[in-house]
Design a protein around this nucleic acid. Structure first.
Lengths: 344, 344
DNA sequence: ATGAAAGCGCTAACAC
DNA sequence: GTGTTAGCGCTTTCAT
């Protein structure tokens, strides 16, 4: 039987004893240090193989001061956007031998900064998606989280790259698209009240409104999921708008579903747009016009930025900005006369 | 300035110095050991707060022999099924103070066992979703992965709970549903060739065929994603079947999309069924008839099983079996005469 | 009640 | 080239 050290698992000491050498030599062999005599190295490898020895990463981490793990804080793992970021991040990091640890804050913004700190301490770096955290809080914790990469947020803390999607421009592009189709009454089905990316959309809409004083833009309260959209049908109809900009694809899908149940035709009666271009957006009926964001790529870039920081390379690429691409599909069409004037 | 130990980060030693006590006392205070004099404890807490000291989890893990982290191996993070398992697992584990580390094998089955081992060593336990791994390989590595919970696989290794969805029964239920609608020519659009859950479906279909010799069941090669379904239109039409059981919802959605492009009506011309009941299944047009699997709950259960193992509780609940629930929606309808006989 | 010291499993100076 | 030794940051006996 393989003898084992106190803990019950096979450790470097067991291999050392079996091979008749010191721990240090075993360590050297396991790490490919070539200053070891080939014969001895072979003996060590044989012993390690026989005992099925695998170095304990925790001991290794403590000694090396690195864990080969990065963390990601997301507000909601059920959201396709964060799933995509995670996927891109995980894939890219894996290629460099890093794993990713998940911290889901479940939309509880008060948890975000605690979770971030905890995750960071277990890892070599952190990707933070914290749309609800206040700017003040972000400023405060950012320095302690370094190496840190921010998604859709910015901070004045130095050396913290931000990957941000230009939701403001994206929303403007979508609004312009609707105007070109002849819509003069639009409505924005907003996202969660304190969401940073919602703020960006709002700012974009202000610019749009200034440029198009002839267009009526109604602001509607909302959220970020399917049910929000589904439940907003009444408010949308009451607004009299014919072109609806939903906060994101999920909301747009919910809205389309609700409109359909009411017997309304999209885009015949009302045009609906989403945002993100999640994988299913092209398969809805009608296919959803949306602002496409290369979100998986964003996750991949997040890793590249973080890697540069971890390697202490001069992070001469302090973040990046992503322009959404207007993806015109079937959920938008020419405006018909506003309903409120149909019988006027 | 807060003085710091060699590493640059604030450690227990710094707090000890500042509070004028030993490391041991600081450790006791941080861990809520009440044998410490209240005054001293207060002094330590003050010092810790002032230095913003946070214990290093790696050091802690090494000393305690636990990481408060569990791992999950998934074949593809882009698959909604695994996303849902991850979500359920992550949420449940978080409630007990555990985090989850992801290992995505990207459908490379040869990687699965290596990844599993690596992930396991960094964690206190592992949830393994390895549909492509051979039984032999699974048998071999399972013991070394303990505490381990298996998803949709079983092993003879003792103390390894399996959470398995009864795909066989589910497929039979779906087939029966189609038969009741009058379909006599069915086709199964299979999953990946070496997939364990595909095998289960196949076995279920064998039972069905034995019970319904009058029904013609064609087997079609396939895969597990949207494109597979989309690309299978020709094969499906060639089969002459009027009731199609797709491997899963994604495949079904791709198939529906492809049929729609060909001008075929679902369910008018062909009935299509999926499997899993992913979040979007109810929002397709037509809404998808499917075998609903409580997949998030499965992730949650995976944690409960794993927790019992980690706590070394008598794991008297060695796994569980989940019965899919037939969810009849709009993508299935009465059969019309087989196309091949329409002009016969 | 508290400190000194050992030990978790490993790597890396340093000495031979 | 290889063994000895000293950490990495923490918890936990064991003395006191």
């Amino acid at each position: 039987m393989a003898r084992k050290s106190a803990s019950g698992r096979i450790g470097i000491a067991d291999v050392a004893v079996k091979a008749g050498v010191s721990h240090a030599t075993v360590s050297r062999v396991m790490n490919g240090n070539f200053t070891v005599d080939p014969d001895i190295a072979a003996r060590v490898r044989a012993a390690a193989a026989e005992l099925k020895y695998q170095p304990n990463p925790v001991g290794r981490s403590l000694a090396l001061g690195k864990t080969d793990t990065i963390g990601i804080v997301v507000p909601d793992l059920a959201n396709p956007t964060f799933q995509a970021i995670l996927r891109g991040l995980s894939r890219a990091a894996a290629q460099d031998g890093y794993r990713v640890l998940i911290a889901d804050s479940f939309e509880v913004s008060s948890e975000e900064s605690i979770l971030a700190g905890e995750a960071r301490r277990r890892c070599d770096g952190l990707v933070l998606c914290a749309p609800r955290m206040t700017d003040a809080e972000l400023e405060e914790i950012a320095p302690s989280l370094h190496p840190l990469v921010l998604i859709n947020r910015t901070t004045t803390a130095p050396g913290v790259p931000s990957l941000v999607v230009d939701y403001g421009q994206g929303v403007q592009d979508i609004a312009e698209h609707l105007v070109e189709l002849g819509h003069t009454r639009l409505a924005f089905l907003a996202g969660p009240p304190r969401s940073a990316s919602n703020e960006m959309r709002l700012k974009g809409l202000e610019i749009f409104k200034a440029a198009h004083p002839e267009v009526d833009v109604t602001m509607l309260e909302g959220g970020s999921d399917f049910d929000t959209g589904h439940g907003a049908v009444d408010a949308v109809l009451a607004s009299g708008a014919t072109g609806i900009l939903a906060f994101n694809d999920l909301v747009a899908m919910g809205l389309m579903s609700g409109l359909h149940e009411r017997g309304l035709d999209v885009p015949g009666d009302i045009s609906v747009t989403g945002f993100d271009d999640i994988p299913f957006a092209r398969y809805t009926t009608p296919a959803l016009t949306t602002g496409a964001v290369p979100i998986t790529e964003l996750g991949e870039q997040a890793w590249h930025q973080l890697r540069a920081l971890i390697r202490k390379e001069g992070n001469d690429t302090p973040g990046g900005r992503y322009q959404p691409r207007l993806e015109v599909r079937a959920s938008t069409g020419p405006a018909k006369a506003p309903r409120s004037t149909v019988h006027g």
